[in-house]
Design a protein around this nucleic acid. Structure first.
Length: 493
RNA sequence: GGCCCCUUAGCCAAGCGGCCUAAGGCAGCGGUUUGCAAAACCGCCAUUCCCGGGUUCGAAUCCCGGAGGGGCCUCCA
C-alpha cells in the first residue's frame, strides 16, 4: 500500500506524489503570538510532526516550515494593555510556544520564519499582484481583488457571490467587493509600521504565508497544513494571491486538522475557554498530551477532558511497565534500542510469534498509509504490547533460572519492532521524568533495606510481617511487586 | 439564512462495499499466576453500527429523507 492523503481541495484521498522526488515541502500555519499557547495550538504541530516523522521513515527529506505571526491587531492591542512593545510580547509568547512544542515531542521544524523578518518579500509580492491587476490601492491600503481570480472559492468550495450575499463581513467602503481582503494596511498613529510604496503600514494577515512559503519552499508546496478553521478565509486567500502571482499551483495537498473542543464548542482564544499548555504540563507529562492528540484521527474534532487524559495516562503506563520489564529481562534500556529509522522489510526468527509481530507491524504501517490514521496505529501498538508480554510470560523470561538465550534474543528482536513503531509516532523518545525522591540514594537504599527484611520474612514464612511492610509502603505510595528475579518497587502512578 | 462535516458498547475510539457474528483503550465481571498481592496473561462485555426508506448477490460502509451535534461564512491552530 502506498501513502494516501485526504486533500481538502479535492475532498478525496489521493496517493502522495511529491513535486520533487524524495522531498516533501511542508508548510503549516503557526500561531499569532499574542498570548501563551493553549492546548488547541498543539494539535496541528503534533499531527504534522507525526506526518513529518512518517515521511522521513518512508525515506523522504522533509523541509518543514512553520511561521510565527508576530504583528497584527491583537498583538498591538495586547501590547498596549500590558504596557509593553509588540516585539517583547511576541518574543515572550514565541518562547512559551517553543517550550510547549518541545515538551510534546515536536521536532524537525526546519524554518520558523517571523512575519516581521519578511516584509520586503511581502511588498514584492504585493507589487506583483498590483502589476498583474489582481490588487488595487485605496487610500494607503492595498486590497486583493477577488473578482480577478476565477478560481476564488475553490478551496472552501463556495461561490464568492453567494458568500457576499449573506455576508456579515463589515463592508469597508475602501473595498470594491465585500470579499476583497487587505494585502497591506496603512498605519495608524502609534502602530508598528514599515515603509512601502503605498506609505507606512503593515502587511495583511494572509500575505505573510504566501511570501514565506515561497521564500523557503518555492512556488509549489507539497503539503500545506493548518486547523480547519483556517480553511476560510486564510487559506483560500493565500491560495488566491499565490496562484494569481505565480500562475502555478500553490499546494498539492491541503491538510486540515479538526479542532480541539472544550465541552461542545471549540477552544479558542476569542472564546476565552482555553487551557494553557504550560499549566497542563504541571499535571500531565508532555507524552500523555501527545498521546491524547494522536488518539483520534487528525481530521476529527477532539474534545478536551481531564477524565480522558487520566484514562490515557493510565493506558500509557502499561508501556512504561513493559519498558521496565524489558530492562529486567535483557539488562538494557528500551530507550537505547537502535531501531531502523527507515521503512524496509524486517526479519525476525521463524515461528508463530515472529509472524504475529510482523503482521502487527504491517497493520500499523497500513493504518498510517491510510491518511495518517494514528488511532488505528496506536491500537496495533497495544496489541503488540500484549503479544510481547505474553511471550515473556510463556517463556518465563523474567526468571533467570528458566530463560533461554534464544527466546530472549527473539524477544529482543520483537521489542525492536515496538521501538521502531513508537519512534514513527514520536512516542517514548526519552524515559519519563522520575520524581526526585525515586532517584534519591538514601530513599532508594532505605526502601531496598525494607524489601530485604521483608524477603527474609517471606523466606521464614512470616507473612504477616511481610505483608505489613508492603502495606505500609503502599500507604506511602510505594508499590511492591514480587517477581522471580526479586522484588521491585515503584511509585504509584 | 448559505456551505461543509459528524453520529459505532457505560465512556473514548478504529472501520472507507464482502476477511465485520465490528480493532484498540478506559471502566466492569470471571479465571490463570502468586503464600497473599501487584504486574502480566486468558476469557466475558455492540447479532449490531442515531432513526426510516432505497441501491446491491452482499452496507456500519453507497443514495434519499428525518433527528441530534459540530465547523465555516468575522480574528482564530
Amino acid at each position: 500500500m502506498t501513502l494516501r492523503i485526504y486533500n481538502t481541495l479535492t475532498r478525496q484521498k489521493e496517493p502522495f506524489v511529491p513535486v520533487e522526488p524524495g522531498k516533501v515541502k511542508m508548510y503549516t500555519c503557526g500561531p499569532t503570538v499574542y498570548k501563551p499557547a493553549h492546548i488547541g495550538h498543539m494539535v496541528g504541530p503534533v499531527i504534522f510532526d507525526t506526518v513529518r516523522r512518517y515521511f522521513e521513515y518512508l525515506g523522504y527529506e522533509v523541509i518543514w516550515v512553520l511561521n510565527i505571526t508576530d504583528v497584527d491587531d491583537k498583538l498591538i492591542a495586547r501590547a498596549r494593555e500590558e504596557n509593553t512593545t509588540v516585539r517583547e510580547l511576541a518574543e515572550r509568547n514565541t518562547a512559551d510556544y517553543l517550550e510547549c512544542l518541545r515538551a510534546l515531542g515536536v521536532e524537525g521544524i526546519r524554518y520558523m520564519p517571523r512575519a516581521t523578518d519578511h516584509i520586503p518579500d511581502m511588498i514584492r509580492l504585493i507589487e506583483g499582484l498590483l502589476a498583474k491587476g489582481h490588487a488595487y490601492v485605496a487610500n494607503g491600503d492595498v486590497y486583493f481583488d477577488v473578482t480577478s481570480d476565477p478560481d476564488y472559492g475553490k478551496l472552501c468550495h463556495r461561490d464568492p457571490e453567494q458568500m457576499a450575499a449573506g455576508a456579515r463581513i463589515e463592508v469597508s467602503e475602501k473595498k470594491r467587493h465585500p470579499g476583497d481582503f487587505a494585502l497591506w494596511k496603512s498605519a495608524k498613529a502609534g502602530e508598528p509600521a514599515w515603509d512601502s510604496p503605498w506609505g507606512p503600514g503593515r502587511p495583511g494577515w494572509h500575505i505573510e504565508c504566501s511570501a514565506m512559503s515561497m521564500r523557503y519552499l518555492g512556488e509549489t508546496l507539497d503539503i500545506h497544513g493548518g486547523g480547519i478553521d483556517l480553511q476560510f478565509p486564510h487559506h483560500e486567500n493565500e491560495l488566491a494571491q499565490s496562484e494569481s502571482f505565480t500562475g502555478k499551483p500553490f499546494v498539492r495537498y491541503w491538510m486540515h486538522n479538526g479542532l480541539l473542543k472544550f465541552g461542545q464548542t471549540k477552544m479558542a482564544g476569542s472564546l476565552g475557554n482555553v487551557v494553557n499548555v504550560r499549566d497542563l504540563l504541571q499535571r500531565y507529562p508532555g507524552q500523555t498530551l501527545r498521546f491524547f492528540l494522536l488518539s483520534t484521527h487528525y481530521r476529527s474534532p477532539i474534545e478536551f477532558s481531564e477524565e480522558r487524559l487520566d484514562a490515557l495516562h493510565k493506558s500509557l503506563s502499561a508501556f512504561y511497565r513493559f519498558f521496565d520489564r524489558y530492562q529486567r529481562i535483557t539488562g538494557e534500556s528500551f530507550y537505547g534500542l537502535q531501531a531502523p529509522r527507515r521503512r524496509r522489510e524486517v526479519h525476525i526468527s521463524n515461528g508463530p510469534f515472529a509472524q504475529d509481530v510482523l503482521r502487527l507491524r504491517q497493520r500499523f504501517l497500513d493504518a498510517l498509509d491510510d491518511d495518517f490514521n494514528t488511532q488505528g496505529a496506536m491500537g496495533v501498538l497495544f496489541e503488540l504490547l500484549t503479544a510481547l508480554n505474553r511471550y515473556a510470560d510463556e517463556h518465563r523470561l523474567e526468571d533467570p533460572d528458566h530463560r533461554q538465550p534464544t527466546s530472549t534474543a527473539v524477544f529482543r528482536q520483537a521489542t525492536l519492532v515496538l521501538r521502531e513503531l513508537t519512534l514513527v509516532l514520536g512516542l517514548f523518545m526519552t524515559p519519563p521524568a522520575v520524581p526526585a525522591i525515586t532517584s534519591d540514594k538514601i530513599v532508594s537504599e532505605l526502601v531496598q533495606l525494607l524489601l530485604d527484611i521483608r524477603n527474609e520474612c517471606r523466606k521464614q514464612k512470616q507473612y504477616a510481617l511481610a505483608d505489613l511492610i508492603r502495606s505500609r509502603l503502599k500507604d506511602l505510595g510505594i508499590v511492591v511487586e514480587d517477581r522471580p528475579g526479586g522484588s521491585t518497587w515503584r511509585l504509584e502512578s
